[in-house]
Design a protein around this nucleic acid. Structure first.
Lengths: 138, 138
DNA sequence: AAGTTATAGTTAGGTCACTAATATTTTAGA
DNA sequence: TCTAAAATATTAGTGACCTAACTATAACTT
């Protein structure tokens, strides 16, 4: 059935995309997901963990563990907020900042590959449909 | 940029879909991914682990662990192949068979929700684009 | 027939997700 | 003011993924 096919295609595409992207990131000693967290910090440094939760659309413990891993790699540092001692703010180190360009290049590469042979008109339509689907999820 | 947006939408849709579906499956005491393995067995019982790897598009250790978990729940049993002793074949128990209908119902529900307000024509076009994208991945 | 190569599966160790339970700090209400 | 509730983050435990390294069996190869 058509609907089943679409769901299966979506599953396949997302899992394979993740796998491929993970391979690309391996050269940079990063794991898929970590690049995403760094990406939020490149846009806005010093975010709290709760803010990261929201932006990454995942739960608090996931952020705790990812932050721990990235800190061990020396890409970020954690600093307690002075005014509210419950809050930990996450800051990029120089090493973390240096990854922005290479990660973006990998991302772009992956991106372009995915949309090969799809015209601009089709991409615009595709976006419209995906926006509708995303809205349906909530 | 358009391409970025499409990738981000795909990521969001797939992760949220997974999350939602996982919640639905929770009622059946199943984890997302496990239903997929069972699904292959409903179509063809007694598959080997390698066959499951290929059909599920995942690695051997993943299957080993999933099979272990499903066996512990009493949904499948593992049986050594008589002719080739390297091979383990996986068979459904009655409990495993009984899950087919309820899981399909959850799947259908999730499906329909995702494609709400998308016309038949649009779905056909969407499928075409997704097939193209899937092909681009390899 | 003996030794090499290929195949099937497991174990160990890692990451990304989740939930449930906990400690700590802050805020708000009686 | 003092206590209850809310917010922030962590720990513990689980499962789906992965790679690398291993065991066991089967199939070639010379």
């Amino acid at each position: 059935m058509l609907n089943d096919e679409i769901r299966e295609l979506l599953d396949k595409i997302s899992s394979q995309t993740r796998r491929n992207y993970n391979h690309l990131l391996h050269d940079l000693n990063l794991h898929v997901g970590q690049d995403n967290l760094l990406c939020k910090l490149w846009r806005e440094d010093g975010l709290t963990q709760v803010e990261l939760c929201n932006k990454l659309n995942c739960e608090a413990p996931t952020v705790t563990n990812m932050v721990k891993a990235l800190e061990k790699k020396g890409l970020i540092i954690r600093r307690k907020d002075y005014n509210d001692k419950r809050i930990t703010r996450i800051f990029l180190t120089d090493a973390g900042k240096d990854l922005e360009a290479p990660v973006n290049e990998k991302w772009r590469k992956q991106q372009d590959r995915l949309l090969t042979d799809i015209t601009l008109d089709e991409r615009m339509l595709l976006r419209r449909l995906l926006i509708q689907m995303e809205a349906n999820l909530f």
